[in-house]
Simulated scan of single mutants.
Amino acid sequence: MQVLITGAHGQVGDGLKRYLGDRGDYELTYLDRDDHPDYDTHVADVNDYDAIRPAFDGQDAVIHLAAYPTTDGTWEQIRDSNLHGTHNVLEAAADAGVSQFVFASSIHAAGMYEEEHAPELYELDFDLTVTHEDPERPDSYYGASKAFGEDWGRYFIECREYPEQFYAIRIASIREPPYDNPYGDAEKGVERGDWERGSHEYETQVKRLQGTWLSQRDWVQLVELCLADDELEFGIFFATSENERGWYDITHAKDVLGYEPQDQGEAWTEPPQDLVEHVENNREI
């Protein structure tokens, strides 16, 4: 299967390259605005349609990751990378006749549910479940851009010949190793000097990530399930691991795609030793 990954060299693309790159089922093409010493890359910015268009020829699927990645984005940053860029990628996929489109959406398309209820939301006994059928509630330009991408994908499915299938995966919290665990954000704060291990701020970060963590291997599983599907035309799926604290519903992904998470946030009761050592070696004093 020929698969193009846009924004391949960012944090979300790391797991796809590591887990899928050596498998015979996929021939991956990487598109990114920056080159990479270890990966042959079509270097182009998604904001430039003519520059990215050749990379789509002959592809069976596109995994669209390229975007300004955080909620602090200004209108100009979000407009160029996330709005115009997503439009360009969809147009290029349509023009090239690409059948499948996997869109890296975000829980921030519904982020105001968290904003409204945090930090009480991070406790195990808090009663809230947000499903794919609940209204979009973006918490930022970034979140609104992800909601836009989902709606733009539905337009292409219903009004254009290609893509034929569109999957919006509302990613929660993916972290690169050694931070790929529920203690990752808390330990990053220790590394930066923002708080001490065991402080209230540290424990709050742990609780939040125990609810939103999407392990790299669970993320890759979801992508593979989308690529293997030949029935669904359009779908929106919240994406976390099997977290008891999670307030975003993943039963839809289980029922429709056959998602079986391998990891769970609450299974971790302390940070892994390799992460602690990494933080202590890089800690800002």
Rank of each mutant, 00 (worst) to 15 (best):
A239H: 08
Q210Y: 01
P177N: 08
A66D: 00
I157D: 11
T29S: 15
L65H: 07
G246T: 09
R23L: 13
R53C: 11
H42V: 15
F126Y: 13
L20G: 14
G246Y: 09
T74V: 02
Y259T: 08
A44F: 05
L20N: 09
Q2T: 11
C226I: 09
Q262N: 07
E203K: 07
V3R: 14
A118D: 01
S173I: 04
Y183A: 04
D48F: 12
T70S: 00
Q216V: 08
T240D: 11
A239K: 09
T41W: 05
E191A: 12
D194P: 02
K17R: 13
A51Q: 08
F148M: 01
A8L: 05
A51M: 02
H87F: 07
G153V: 08
H108D: 00
V220P: 07
E120T: 01
V256H: 11
S105T: 03
I107G: 10
Y49S: 08
D139Q: 01
E133M: 09
S173G: 13
Y19G: 03
R18G: 05
L16M: 14
D274M: 03
S241Q: 10
V12A: 14
A51P: 06
T129K: 10
E231K: 11
P178R: 10
Q165I: 06
F56R: 11
Y142T: 00
A168L: 06
N82S: 01
V102H: 03
L65V: 13
V256K: 14
D229C: 04
Y162E: 02
H36A: 06
L209A: 00
S106D: 02
F126M: 01
S199T: 13
V102G: 05
T129F: 02
R79D: 06
P119L: 07
T29W: 15
E201R: 15
R170A: 02
E91P: 06
W152A: 15
Q100P: 05
Y259L: 13
H9K: 05
V102D: 04
H117G: 03
V98G: 03
V220F: 03
V102I: 10
P261Y: 04
S199Y: 12
D218P: 14
R175I: 04
T251N: 15
